[in-house]
């Protein structure tokens, strides 16, 4: 079965991460973040796992930090993902309309696995229709996401999220944008590939209630703009 599933099944156990795994964690997390994370999590994790001891002196060495963070990542189930693909974004309101058109879509996320079949994280995404015709249309958002694997034996998952989104139009002179709460729902599949997991997924995001405003004057064209985003992407996930 996939690497993911083997990881999921192994979650309750604390196993020593491989050399490769430690390297990936190091690459994904910037050094300051790594240190901060280790300072925050290592004592807490150790407190839970065993009584304090003079072994905390190991924090002083980079190798020890890496090892502990990797260990905690394995135990806490940290994961990170980046991806890209195509998507459409369309805006509608009583006084506005931006027809959905295909454009590039990118996203990135980090999170944890509190349970074997459930992942949580924070994701940021962007839809970029910025090539040609002199008018840039962008949609972007940040959301808390959850990913649920209906079966531990299968790599299919459904995902959902809540957060905020923003749609903008900019031609260099006229700029309009609408920001509003957003929800998302999607489904995908995990495919192990050379030590990572490829996750093709389709996601629908929708938001409503934001005012479409002119950036130049601040006046609202409409009070309740509705944004709909479809995306078809492939993510690369590190567990």
């Amino acid at each position: 079965m996939s690497r993911l599933l083997s990881h999921s099944k192994a979650l309750p156990r604390v196993s020593r991460p491989s050399r490769r795994t430690r390297g990936r964690v190091h690459v994904l997390l910037p050094r300051p973040a790594l240190l901060a994370l280790s300072l925050l999590l290592v004592p807490m994790a150790r407190g839970a796992a065993q009584p304090p001891s003079d072994s905390s002196a190991r924090l002083a060495t980079p190798n020890a930090v890496r090892r502990d963070v990797a260990l905690l990542a394995q135990r806490m189930g940290l994961w990170a993902s980046v991806g890209g693909g195509r998507g459409t974004a369309g805006l509608q309101c009583d006084a506005c309309r931006s027809d959905a058109g295909p454009a590039f879509m990118v996203h990135a996320a980090v999170g944890a696995r509190p349970y074997a079949r459930f992942h949580v994280g924070i994701e940021t995404w962007a839809w970029l229709d910025v090539i040609g015709n002199g008018v840039d249309r962008t949609a972007r958002g940040t959301q808390l996401i959850g990913r649920f694997y209906p079966s531990v034996r299968r790599a299919a998952f459904v995902t959902g999220g809540v957060g905020t989104s923003r749609f903008g139009v900019d031609d260099g002179e006229a700029r309009f944008s609408a920001s509003s709460p957003a929800v998302s729902l999607g489904a995908g599949w995990d495919l192990p590939f050379r030590g990572v997991v490829l996750s093709p997924a389709i996601t629908l995001m929708a938001s409503s209630g934001g005012a479409l405003r002119s950036a130049r004057t601040g006046n609202a064209v409409a009070d309740a703009a509705r944004l709909g985003v479809w995306r078809g992407t492939v993510g690369i996930t590190w567990f």
Binding site: L91, D94, A95, C96, R97, S98, G134, V135, D136, R137, V169, D170, D171, G172, E173, A174, R175, F176, L212, V221
Partner: peptide
Amino acid sequence: GSSGGAGAVIDLR
């Protein structure tokens, strides 16, 4: 309506 960026999003009726 308008042209450019405004025309790409504003659709007054």
